[in-house]
Write a protein that binds this DNA or RNA. Sequence first.
DNA 1: TGCCAGGCCCTCTTTAGGGCCTT
Length: 208
Amino acid sequence: MSDANTVVVLDFETTGLSPDYGDRAIEIGAVKINQGVVVDRFQGLMNPGKPITGFIENYTGIYNHMLKDAPPCAEVMQQFSEFIGDYNLVAHNASFDKRFLDAELAAISQPYSGEFACSMLMARRIYQDAPNHKLSSLIHYRGIESQGEFHRALYDAEMTAKFWLVMLADIEQQFALPAVPFSLIQTLMKTPKQKIARVIDNQRPCYG
DNA sequence: TGCCAGGCCCTCTTTAGGGCCTT
């Protein structure tokens, strides 16, 4: 069921960068957040039907022997489709994860209706002084505790979720907002950096 | 087998090019 107060933060590990060139998902990790609290988690390795490269093994810590007996992408993605339902979605560099979500769900003819928000596009606007906008760098920049073991799907989804909540809290504090609705996030993602403050001011509810 | 992308955003821009970010 759709719920404006719930988002699913997700992260894919994949065989490469482009589903249009045959790359497939090998792991999906996600956390469901309701009103700032993690209420559910999803993690699944999946067999992409072909060996992964040594680069991907080293990058993710996921090895071919781990995928050999994993269920196929269709089975895991069917379960994940039920997990995300119609909830809105968040990912770091969401254009990447959206391409794989679209491709894997299209392969099993499963639509979804949630809207994507991108923590990277938001961070580029809110944290303009950060050294860069990689997920690991932003976690360090905002002083969020981590084990430094990035590049597994559920871990990255957990860290993205923590960062997302910190960023929303920072926006609320910086701009004196009682809350940051998803609709405002979508507007801000398309707003030039220089106009962020003005747009938020215009969205602030009137009191009295 | 081995090959590979795409959207955002800045600037030495807009009739373009290149860095960032994701695996």
